[in-house]
Write a protein that binds this DNA or RNA. Structure first.
Lengths: 297, 297
DNA sequence: TATCCTTACGGAATTCGTAAGCATG
DNA sequence: CATGCTTACGAATTCCGTAAGGATA
């Protein structure tokens, strides 16, 4: 048994039991993988895959169990490398963060600026995606940290920390009828075409729930994953926007006006996630402390 | 990085950083180990050992950390094999138990007899040693289960379960002056030469404490690790014996008489231990249930 | 001088990629 | 017949054991 076999097994499972695809991902040949899987089965004395003809159709019960343990072996092996790197070059390396657009664009810059002062030699790697993709990236070890408002705490393999609390805010074009209103209720808002986040993003579900609770069914004319896109279309007059507070800046967004809301929209919590059991290097611990607002020293 | 390197590292540490000794234990050559350690250091980018000249004198700080993780990698790798074996031959394999003499001789027989009825094809491997050795064997993975009254719950890497509670009892030769006494106090007992377990065994510490609490200092003329040895010398008239209740059987020990004690001796708890995180095969879970008296089904 | 780690080198075993075979839908 | 796993085989790599070297107490 060796690590390569376990990596191959893991990748094969991740690729839906497609050896050819897994072989590509691992930069090796497909017959090599085929042999490794067979040898692993021989060594463990267990059939890992249900085969229909020569295709792998699903994992056997034993296979499911083995894969789960193999993941742990590989995770700990990764920790070995991380521990080595931490001692070898204490303050060098790469901080790898996966985040949704809003986090990457509005929250992370000031945190990363601070981080950069403390660790100028650490390179930053920022992966962007949907909350679900962020969760996957962290769970797979493609990123050490994940940041999003959604999805993260639904993954049992992730450990999450509250990063900051935020609410949605209403923005309208400067020339809009609502621009001069001191504040509006949700019922008034529901009468206007709405532009906000896609359902899987940034607390959208809670937003819908808040309207539904009052029996309102706003017309969402445009959904986007990206606060900047939303603001652009709001400015163009497509509708009124509901975006994360942090994404509105009067100075940067002169064509938009923020309007107060009479009914409080539900609070959202952006969370930082790591994979359970992952060993955090020194600078990674510091980043976690920065994001969660906890002092390290 | 491969498993062999990690096994070599673990064994080197266990052997007090003596490569030559570790090489023997692993049935390989010493230069092979030397190379593996150096290559592991190269790959992790870290010095694992403090070297004085060419000898390894201690682990570096990084080394300590790496070794701890390597142990986890190897433990999970072992779980892989165990999971495989469990599915491959569900009710075959080896039940590996380390125990002190008293457990092996008096408690385990009836449990193993029951176990054997349920799993006739499982082979039994019984390792005997001092409580400390039992703990080591389990911690090192040389045995899956450990059973003893002492030591086990002082090891953080072990998980322990109460197996049964017992007290010491007093046995004397049939012709002894105390043989006809209905029961005796500790003060009377302390006036006689005593034969009992060695300090590291079978609740001996609590026994001493019980005497000390009453200001008594009995003369222990013979210490043994083994109830049968104690009984033999008691029968020969060397002194009176304090042994585990379970080790006295009037039918088997006709030359001995059990005498009641007026003062209750402290209760001891024999514990069953497994290494934390170890995957228990089906029959091992059943054994655990048998020993702890919990039903499985 | 005895112990113990390191280096060097030749042979054995493992691993990989290419090419060809074969089963399913 | 397109996709996808298996088998076969030669080449490259890796790994190991023996032998010799060097450092410490």
């Amino acid at each position: 048994m060796n690590f390569q076999q376990l990596r191959s097994l893991r990748e094969t499972v991740r690729r839906g039991l497609n050896l050819t695809s897994a072989a590509e991902a691992l930069h090796t040949s497909q017959p090599a993988l085929s042999k490794q899987m067979r040898e692993l089965e021989d060594e463990l004395g267990v059939t890992l895959f249900v085969r229909h003809g020569k295709k792998y159709t699903q994992l056997t019960e034993a296979g499911e169990r083995i894969v789960a343990i193999a993941e742990r072996v590989l995770a700990e092996a990764d920790n070995l490398k991380r521990a080595g790197a931490d001692h070898a070059g204490g303050e060098t390396g790469t901080l790898s963060v996966a985040a949704t657009h809003t986090q990457a664009r509005y929250l992370l810059p000031k945190l990363l600026a601070q981080f950069r002062i403390e660790y100028p030699k650490v390179r930053l790697s920022l992966h962007q995606g949907s909350p679900e993709q962020v969760a996957q990236m962290v769970a797979h070890g493609d990123a050490v940290f994940g940041m999003a408002t959604e999805s993260l705490d639904r993954h049992p393999s992730l450990e999450t920390f509250a990063a900051y609390r935020w609410r949605h805010c209403l923005v309208v074009p400067a020339a809009h009828a609502l621009a001069s209103a001191g504040s509006v209720g949700l019922d008034v808002l529901a009468a206007h075409p709405l532009i906000t986040y896609s359902p899987e993003f940034a607390g959208r579900r809670r937003l819908d729930a808040a309207f539904a609770q009052r029996g309102l069914r706003p017309e969402v004319v445009l959904e986007a994953i990206d606060s900047d896109v939303i603001k652009t279309y709001v400015a163009l007059g497509f509708g009124v926007g509901l975006i994360a507070e942090i994404a509105y800046d009067p100075a940067r967004d002169p064509e938009l006006v923020r309007v107060g809301l009479e009914d409080a929209l539900p609070e959202n919590v952006a969370r930082l996630a790591t994979r359970r059991g992952v060993l955090l290097r020194g600078f990674e611990q510091r980043f976690l402390a920065l994001v969660t607002g906890v002092a390290t020293d």
